[in-house]
Amino acid sequence: MQKSTFRLFLILLVVLTIAFVAKANPAEYLNNPTFTGDITGWTVVYDVQGAGSIAYDGTYYHGGTAGSLKGVTGVAKGSVMQGYAWQSIGTEINLDDVVKLSLQWSKRSVVSTASGINILKAEITRPSLPDDWVEIWRCDESLPLVDGATAWTGPSELDVSDFFDETGSYKFRWYFDLKSGNNNSAQAIAWFDTTSLDVSAGVSLTCDFSTTTASFGELTTSVVSTAYGSTTINVISADTVFIKVQDDGDGVDPGLWKSSATTDLIGSANEASGNTATLEAGTEGYGMQATSTNEGSGAEFTIAVRYDYASTTNTVGGFEITDVTMASTTGAVTNRRVIMYYKAAINASNVMGSYSDTITYTCSMSE
């Protein structure tokens, strides 16, 4: 009987998802963020003032802080007020810091429903472009009903870190864009209160991969083969680590894929795409084994049950088209390592030719 032989290639796609988490207590970076007693620390500027104004309001405010920042148009039909209260942030922000925005806002229409969009915004300038304002938040575009202020609302600890992508000094402003309704006695009003810009130092994650390719060479029906080129991941992290694995397969099912005619898939972990399989010569299957080493320090890696098999055996864990957690820790690690081995077997029905697969590893600090 003629022996079937195959040349199989394995491509490992290394994807690092670096997550940042706050490890220190966050610090408030705005001066007088709750407008208690006045708006000291804020400079008011108008793009279009008309008869409107931006000022302290000691009569309408959120929570226990006595005071808010109030923007108001003139009393007139279609009166427009566009302006802002701004300040320079006194402490430098680093590009890997965690920055969270909190605020409460409210709107009101007087006599006639306000016109236009009546928008409230939070904006910053970056260190490299100190005159270019960038929007990091805006309220919804609803128009308040006549004479009834909307309930206080707003985001709490909204993560805006992506906007602070340079290290240096930033400016911050609260922006009013208001227009009164269609009545000579109409007026549009809006408020900011209970604001904050909390900043805390971020910690990073490093995952170094030993290789991005591996090869089975030629496979035959007489043996279970181990790929030339295992993968080692060396991890340094100041917090928990989760390593996930995802397989491309044929786009529908995981496995080693022969994309040229006649197409064929060597299933993972077996022909039926089972979670695990003990590979045997002459029986189709493909998968991975993972183990952690004693090197490094800190929390130890826990290998997922699916992949926790010794490389001296032929029992493997199957891949999935979607992410599956392969290894994780419960705390910080320094130079801890995980090693992955790849094994495959074929049967006489598998089509001769060249097979390949792409495996994606994702390394992150949150599950």
Rank of each mutant, 00 (worst) to 15 (best):
K70C: 11
Y56P: 02
S68E: 09
A27S: 14
Y61D: 02
N25H: 12
D96N: 08
F20L: 12
L129A: 15
K107A: 08
T59W: 01
T5S: 10
A76L: 10
Y60I: 13
L69A: 00
I119T: 14
Q87H: 09
D131S: 07
T34N: 13
L69C: 04
V48E: 11
T65G: 11
L13K: 10
I124T: 11
L13F: 07
D97T: 08
S115H: 02
T91C: 01
S112V: 02
W133D: 00
V45G: 02
D132E: 05
Q87D: 12
V111M: 08
N118C: 08
D131W: 00
S112P: 01
Y84Q: 05
V15Q: 13
L16T: 13
E123H: 01
G41Y: 03
T65F: 13
L8V: 14
G90E: 13
L10W: 10
L16W: 02
K3G: 13
V134R: 10
K121S: 13
F9Y: 02
P26H: 12
Q82V: 06
Q104P: 04
T5R: 09
T40S: 11
L129R: 09
S53M: 07
T5I: 02
P127L: 06
I18Y: 04
Q49M: 00
R126Q: 04
P127H: 02
S102M: 10
P26D: 04
I117M: 15
G58V: 01
L95C: 03
I93C: 07
K3A: 14
V15S: 12
D131M: 00
Q104H: 10
T17A: 05
A114T: 09
P130A: 04
L30S: 07
A114E: 08
V44S: 13
N31S: 14
G83D: 00
N94D: 14
V98W: 01
A114M: 09
Y29W: 11
I93K: 04
T113I: 14
A114V: 04
A85N: 03
L8I: 11
A51I: 07
T36F: 15
Q82N: 11
I119F: 01
P127S: 02
Y84F: 15
S115W: 06
T59S: 10
S68N: 14
K3D: 15
T59A: 11
F6V: 08
